[in-house]
Design a protein around this nucleic acid. Structure first.
Lengths: 249, 249
DNA sequence: AGTATCCAATTGCATATGCAATTGGCAAGC
DNA sequence: GCTTGCCAATTGCATATGCAATTGGATACT
């Protein structure tokens, strides 16, 4: 169990104390200072360190547990949780998982890779600025040999410097990024397009067939991390979600 | 301000008291006993009625407020909230809103309506049983005169009996159902299909063009309420969502 | 009638206190 | 070594109490 918590907890003095504590700890988790598995100090320690009553500290921790950021067990204490492997909306994040959940054998090929400043056309397609260096990759993911989805991705190399030397030989970049980079926000858009002939050939479908295009961009704080376009043969894929009138179920 | 709260609050004795209170009030709201706008008794009253301390009642109410089910204001008291008009995922629920958000003038036509037990083909398409009577509708929604989306819907008449006599002359069925029926859960699936020629003609696009197909089914508790298939011209539409590693942002 | 003022109802927040439940780890015994 | 039982650390929950902040409505005043 990781147990190094060098950073001191700093309250910002604005708003209720319990919320200051909640935000302070949340920030330590989200910025990576307390990685998953880290032991959070027990309530008594936080109480002394922060000069708040135990119930106030408790309230902050209970909220964080409710948000899924920490796990709490009696006697064992409180630890930083790992980001959940699957949400309804996050199920599409890991393509190997997606394929295996269908009971198929996963495989992938890197079709191309090129590093450097993006061309005008590439910058346009991914809505990024041309000044920053990126890695530009194309991949084909397969399920039991059959083409599953075509991926085109850029990775911002100054946000994720380790990606410069990573070859993605054993882990596709999407999963590698989940493990080797932090992200705080993602935006995705789903649309329907007709397959261009080059893409259709790779996916083994007829040109012009309808495909689902998932475009996703992720950021850490304000810095862009990666942007990806995933092209799914429409006849074989659908995205499913569940919710209730007041939000997710 | 509505203020009739006939039902007594019943605790079920299982789990923590604050959670019993939270669930009891939540259920009164979700099953319609306390419609939006109803005044929730003040903490002191609940405290006496339920035999719990004020802080315990408070904890339950604070949680419900966090879930968006109630609104609380000092001195004014606590009232049952209206279901939010828009969530990232719910933005697609009201087509008039969707159209107006694009700055267009909304309009719609009812293309057909037929009530009765569903045919085998219809039951198959919407994954419903044939035993129950439904209303079967087709509509075309327009934005500033242009076709926006083609809707095909069934409404379960024994779950929503008022729909038998409603003509949907001024409000399309999706919005009418939001106001005139309760729902606790929805499931939607998004896929890409090629436009059939009849649908293409109605949407003003070429046959075979890619379209986004949104299929949504909603239930109240276990009872099916409605099921709808929405066909969007793919070139003109995309669905956008935002989230963070621990859930919605 | 209009306006300024005050009061009281209601929620928001923090503390102090006590006991219950869980369980990791130690100690004792076999 | 293995098991059993106990202890203490830690979280979970409920209560009682007090004060702060907000504000609807009454009251007093012009």
């Amino acid at each position: 169990m990781t147990d190094t918590r060098g950073e001191a907890i700093r309250l910002d003095g604005t708003g209720p104390v319990y919320d200051q504590i909640r935000r302070a700890i949340r920030d330590l988790i989200l910025d990576g200072s307390w990685p998953p598995g880290t032991t959070v100090p027990p309530e008594h320690a936080l109480m002394e360190q922060l000069g708040a009553s135990r119930m106030t500290v408790h309230r902050a921790l209970v909220q964080l547990a409710g948000e899924g950021l920490i796990n709490r067990r009696r006697r064992s204490g409180t630890t930083v949780a790992s980001p959940p492997a699957s949400h309804a909306m996050l199920d599409i994040l890991s393509i190997p998982d997606e394929v295996r959940r269908l009971g198929q054998v996963y495989g992938y090929d890197i079709l191309s890779r090129q590093d450097g400043r993006p061309s005008a056309e590439l910058a346009e397609r991914f809505a990024v600025r041309r000044a920053r260096p990126v890695a530009h990759l194309s991949l084909l993911h397969r399920g039991s040999g059959q083409p599953h989805v075509l991926e085109e991705r850029i990775i911002h190399l100054d946000t994720v410097p380790d990606a410069r030397t990573e070859r993605f030989a054993t882990t596709p970049p999407g999963d590698w990024l989940l493990q080797n980079s932090l992200w705080s926000q993602a935006e995705h858009a789903i649309s329907a397009v007709a397959a261009a002939s080059a893409d259709a050939a790779l996916l083994g479908i007829a040109p012009g067939e309808p495909c689902l295009l998932v475009e996703r961009r992720t950021w850490n704080q304000e810095a862009p991390v990666t942007a990806v376009r995933l092209l799914y043969p429409g006849a074989r894929h659908r995205f499913v979600g569940r919710f209730g009138p007041y939000g997710a179920v």
